[in-house]
Design a protein around this nucleic acid. Structure first.
Length: 820
RNA sequence: GCCGAAGUGGCGGAACUGGUAGACGCGCCGGACUCAAAAUCCGGUUCCCCUCGGGGAGUGUGGGUUCGAUUCCCACCUUCGGCACCA
């Protein structure tokens, strides 16, 4: 008996990683010109690229192992698989990490990238390293700038002064998407409101497309689509033009309830509304109103949202266009300047906020909509919740109309009078892209007294990020200190110009990286359209749900614009999206402060990368949250060792290559074929990664129980082959031991349909739906025969109590149910 | 408040189109091997009742459809996630 060598993952994993490296096993060149037409044999898998501020964590391991399993399977099924990798390297977290360590952001970031790359190689992921990119390299951000300029030319990148969110800790503005509950998404500091001139992308122009083209995203998780829908927040309504009594100045409002127009008993302006000072100028109310405006400005966003509603009367009135009624104009900070027109008509009977305000200040509450049956809500002064089947009351000529019709009729009437129109409101705001920080992509614009904001000509790109002595955040961009760099001739007139010193939000960098992968070395355009149109849209995008809004919305927006620029032939970048769950550690969210961070690399040192990969996917459904248990990886380790022994036993028993007998028909052979079918179907169709492992475990258990079965060798080879996407080093080593070569490119096994069915089946016998006996019969036994066999059963007879069967239900090969 | 997802043994989970609930793994119990331990292997493991044979209950709760429901329908409870002064 030969002594079996021990399974030593460290040696095996190093060995095969070297082989794959030397052979460039996973490098996929772009197809030649003639091949670019046919998309059917390609698959493009992208996992969200790692952010270069630290090391690899469990989330990455899950993310990239899912992608790896899918890629191995598809590659072995004969598809041309593109699977690249890169680094999201610019931005706040990388810069903050550098500041904390006291090094230059570039040095720290590039060191982090080296670590991450090393760790990714250690995990054995089959990545095409020839396409590696990083967003902080000039070869990449040159094209980020180039794209910015195309947006600028189209008016999709513009500067405006606006109320913006400011993070006092990170000393920069934030996009709306980066504010969570009034706090900075990154550092958690409470966000302040400021009025500043900043760069924006006009993503609101694409609100409808971003909503409507979700149709093209059938394979996206419902929760992500819902979150994007909520974020965009489209609501149908009307623009209604009130006028200031006396001056006749127009005061438009947006409302989703034009049917309640007759119930408007006051009017409210946001404190920041430009008309406020003018309205009260020289009146007795001026002091109080301007005082209120100052106080509102000093309040934090959070305070504004949580305090009791308050406001101040301006002394002026607005005229309601439907009935000519004069209603008092108030200023209150529960009205937001950034939504709608920054002004509202207040209908206290039908809006909770207006109701609270009216109660506090003793303003009339007039009900204008009531349930059609005339039932509830008739007592004056009450807030009436919106219900089905309502009709208008107290609404002049519109009284009696059902509410939906009232909406339409009033809107049409306003339209005819030139006092309003049907319109759509969105929650989505333009994407604020400039940042007052050092470590980012410079915005390629020169400001000139004479010409304004002038684009840097394409042939002068990239605008390199200058070296500065002090890159600490201080409320204005550190680039402003690089005087030599800032002072530059205006590209338009040649006069004195100054470079834009803000840098771009890092989400700009990551909005197009998945296209650059296709053509990473291109130095005369961001990518070749032909090549991009071949690989994209991405067949499978994989990443965490934390990007459900931010990155995924931005990347969709970019793709649509690039499509309209003629750079791409498609409108949605990611045909299918998979969101993996979060991995917690022993029941709690992993965090450095709790000290419960599970470092995957440490476990790879102890058990090997293959065991870590297996356990990570075996924990549970990959799209749900999972909890890391140390005992669990022991199970993965034991499983690999069991398969190791089983395969060695078979190799010793049946000799070298070619000994596997695929044709034999035994119970074990059938089990092997069913396993092939299940593993393939679960991964490729059902996107399940844990059940295939369980299926292979079952197969291995079966082989172990009958090692002398004529199909044992074949079954062992099948188990090795099926586990290869999960444990590629381990499988490769066993494959070699079994006398074969190059499992990574060996065709994926195909189940023999003839062996997928059992010849003997167990048929369950129920009496009144309760299990009473089991029959072991040949598959295909007729219904009559099954009933006869069932009735012949003593156990069944005992439960029939002599009663006559009223009805029998037969499911062939599965069950007989006798009803008495 | 609005929107979404989910509730199954001691634990992670399986059961795909309504048809044997608890696969697979962890943990635990018992046994074999060993001087002993580790490793490995074998058996058991939803709960309750029972001497054996077996019987009863059971997938968050309450109803319903069905010969039959974890699966379909209605109502509710709980947990998690997102949005929220959005007019």
């Amino acid at each position: 008996m030969e002594t079996m060598e021990r399974y030593d993952p460290q040696v095996i994993e190093a060995k095969w990683q070297q082989v794959w490296d030397a052979e460039q096993a996973f490098v996929v060149p772009n197809p030649g010109p003639g091949e670019l037409v046919d998309h059917r044999d390609k698959t493009y898998v992208v996992e969200m690229l790692p952010y270069a501020s630290g090391e690899l964590h469990m989330g990455h391991v899950l993310n990239y192992t899912i992608g790896d399993v899918l890629c191995h399977l598809r590659r072995r099924r004969g598809l041309r698989v593109l699977r690249p990798m890169g680094y999201d390297a610019f931005g706040l977290p990388a810069e903050n990490a550098a500041i904390k360590e006291g090094g230059h952001p570039r040095v720290i970031t590039e060191r982090n990238i080296r670590t991450i790359r090393e760790q990714m190689r250690r995990m054995g992921w089959a990545i095409d390293w020839s396409r590696e990119i990083s967003s902080h390299e000039p070869e990449y951000y040159r094209w980020t700038q180039w794209l910015f300029l195309r947006f600028f030319e189209r008016g999709l990148a513009y500067r405006k002064e606006a109320a913006v969110k400011w993070c006092p800790n990170d000393q920069t503005v934030l996009a709306n998407e980066q504010v969570i509950d009034g706090h900075c998404e990154r550092c958690g500091a409470e966000v302040e409101a400021k009025s500043l001139t900043q760069w924006f992308f006009k993503i609101t122009d694409y609100a409808d497309e971003l909503l409507d083209e979700m149709e093209l995203l059938e394979q996206w998780p419902e929760r992500v689509l819902t979150m994007q829908r909520n974020w965009i927040g489209r609501s149908q309504g009307a623009r209604v033009v009130f006028t200031v009594e006396g001056s006749g100045e127009e005061l438009p409002v947006f409302t989703t309830r034009p049917d309640t127009l007759f119930g408007a008993t006051f009017f409210v302006l946001a404190p920041e509304h430009p008309l406020v000072p003018e309205l009260v100028a020289g009146t007795e109310h001026e002091g109080a109103v301007l005082d209120y405006v100052r106080h509102a400005a000093a309040r934090s966003t959070v305070e504004r949202e949580t305090k009791e509603k308050d406001g101040v009367f301006t002394g002026r009135h607005a005229v309601n266009p439907v009935n000519g009624e004069s209603i008092p104009i108030w200023v209150a900070d529960y009205v937001l300047i950034e939504y709608g027109t920054g002004a509202i008509m207040a209908v206290p009977a039908h809006d909770e906020r207006d109701h609270a305000f009216a109660e506090r200040y003793g303003i009339e509450i007039r009900q204008v909509v009531a349930p059609a049956d005339g039932g509830a809500g008739q007592d004056e002064g009450a807030f009436v919740a919106h219900t089905e089947n309502e009709v208008l009351v107290n609404s002049g000529g519109f009284t009696g109309l059902p509410a939906p019709e009232g909406k339409r009729a009033i809107t049409e009437w306003l339209s005819a009078q030139g006092k309003g129109e049907a319109t759509v409101g969105y929650r989505l705001r333009d994407w604020l892209l400039s940042r007052q920080r050092y470590w980012g992509c410079p915005i390629p614009i020169v400001h000139c007294e004479a010409c304004g904001a002038v684009p840097v000509p394409d042939d002068q790109l990239p605008v390199l990020l200058p070296e500065v002595e002090d890159y600490m955040p201080k409320g204005r961009s550190p680039l402003a200190a690089a005087e030599d760099w800032v002072a530059v001739a205006c590209p338009a007139c040649g006069g004195a110009g100054r470079r834009e010193t803000d840098t771009m939000d890092t989400f700009v960098d990551s909005s197009w990286y998945f296209i650059r992968y296709c053509d990473p070395g291109n130095d005369h355009e961001p990518f070749s359209r032909e090549i991009a149109d071949y690989w994209l849209p991405v067949n499978q995008y994989i990443g965490g749900v934390e990007h459900a809004i931010l990155h995924l919305l931005y990347a969709r927006f970019f793709t649509k614009v690039m499509n309209e620029l003629g750079l791409l032939g498609f409108r949605e970048p990611f045909a299918r999206l998979f969101n993996q769950g979060m991995i917690t550690a022993h029941g709690a969210k992993m965090s450095k402060s709790k000290g419960n961070v599970v470092n995957p690399l440490e476990y790879a040192e102890r058990y090997g990368a293959d065991a870590v990969r297996i356990y990570t996917l075996f924990m549970g459904p990959a799209d749900e949250d999972m909890d890391w248990q140390d005992a669990g990886i022991d199970g993965a380790w034991r499983f690999l060792n069991r398969l190791w022994r089983v395969a060695h036993e078979q190799a010793a028993q049946t000799g070298g290559a070619g000994a596997a007998e695929a044709g034999v028909d035994t119970a074990l052979a059938r089990k092997a074929h069913r396993t092939i079918a299940k593993v393939t179907d679960d991964i490729d169709r059902r996107f399940l990664f844990h059940t295939p492992i369980a299926a292979v475990m079952e197969l291995v258990n079966e082989i172990q129980r009958s090692p002398d079965d004529p199909a044992a060798r074949f079954s062992a080879e099948t188990a090795v082959s099926l586990i290869q996407p999960y444990a590629p080093h381990f499988a490769e080593e066993l494959w070699q031991h079994l006398g074969h070569e190059r499992l990574w490119e060996h065709p994926w096994p195909v189940a023999d349909p003839a062996l997928l069915v059992e010849d003997q089946v167990e048929v369950v016998v129920q009496v009144n739906g309760k299990l009473r006996d089991r029959l072991h019969v040949p598959a295909g036994t007729s219904e009559e025969e099954l009933v006869a066999l069932a009735l012949a059963s003593e156990r069944v007879q005992a439960h029939l109590n002599g009663g006559e069967p009223r009805k029998t239900i037969v499911v062939p090969d599965r069950l007989v149910n006798i009803v008495v």
